[in-house]
């Protein structure tokens, strides 16, 4: 479970997030919608304890990011989009094993997790090759495995399908569905409305750091009187100045 409570984040005179409140239930795939610069990544970084909220608090599985950052980190797995943050000079296996060790996985358990994720993500062919020469899709698979190696309860996916080809994006969506079946709590940030429509039932829509809507996709459509999510998104963006 993720609970965002009246969170604000300021960098000097610039406010990236204003008074943000929403709640993701345990076992739910929740969408965090917004255009680039809306405050999605800042919110994710606060959840991952890399940034601290200026106001308010975030609770992950009952632990506060302010008071118990170490407990929060143990329970989350975060995947940043764009730059996938892998060590190019290490092999896929070494990348995953490194993070597994940092999460305190015993060698036998780590080996088991790497083998299982390698099969699941279809990485067996390139698991022992250095990441530097991988395609974007291959790198994203390794990054997903690294995010999941310690089997976290809460998974934060920040624009995870950016730059992926159709096949890898589809594989990724199947992966998210599978994780949901396993009871994981997933927060999925994206500006791809089609992807959100396929994966999430409930969303929070933020624009310029402010929450514009939080609820089910159906109620979102009803509220804006539009059926297409892209149209709703544009209506929010264009109406922001009003």
């Amino acid at each position: 479970m993720i609970e965002v409570k009246q969170v604000a984040k300021r960098f000097d005179s610039f406010t990236a997030v204003h008074d943000l409140t929403f709640r993701v239930e345990a076992g739910e795939v929740y969408g965090l919608l917004g255009e680039n610069g809306a405050g999605k990544t800042t919110t994710m970084r606060m959840m991952a304890t890399i940034l601290q909220p200026t106001e308010g608090d975030i609770e992950i599985s009952g632990y506060s990011v302010r008071r118990d950052p170490a407990q929060v980190r143990r329970r989350i797995g975060i995947l940043f989009g764009g730059d996938v943050g892998l060590y190019n000079r290490l092999t896929a296996r070494e990348n995953i094993a490194y993070f597994g060790s940092l999460y305190g996985l015993a060698p036998a358990r780590l080996q088991e997790r790497i083998d299982s994720l390698s099969r699941l993500l279809d990485m067996e062919e390139f698991i022992d090759r250095r990441v530097g020469a991988f395609s974007r899709g291959m790198k994203q698979k390794v990054a997903i495995a690294r995010t999941l190696v310690h089997d976290p309860d809460v998974i934060l996916l920040d624009e995870p399908s950016t730059g992926l080809d159709v096949t890898t994006a589809n594989m990724f969506r199947r992966m998210v569905s599978r994780m949901q079946e396993e009871g994981k709590t997933i927060l999925f940030s994206s500006h791809n409305m089609g992807e959100i429509n396929k994966l999430c039932k409930r969303v929070a829509l933020i624009h310029k750091g402010r929450l514009r809507f939080a609820g089910t996709l159906d109620s979102l459509r009803q509220r804006f009187g539009l059926d297409d999510l892209d149209d709703i998104f544009m209506a929010v963006v264009e109406g922001s100045g009003q």
Binding site: R45, A70, D83, V84, G85, F99, L102, R146
Partner: peptide, 13 residues
């Protein structure tokens, strides 16, 4: 620059 430090800092260490 490569984004690996940010990933590293999300680990419980």
């Amino acid at each position: 620059e490569r984004g690996t430090l940010e990933s590293l800092m999300t680990a419980p260490i």
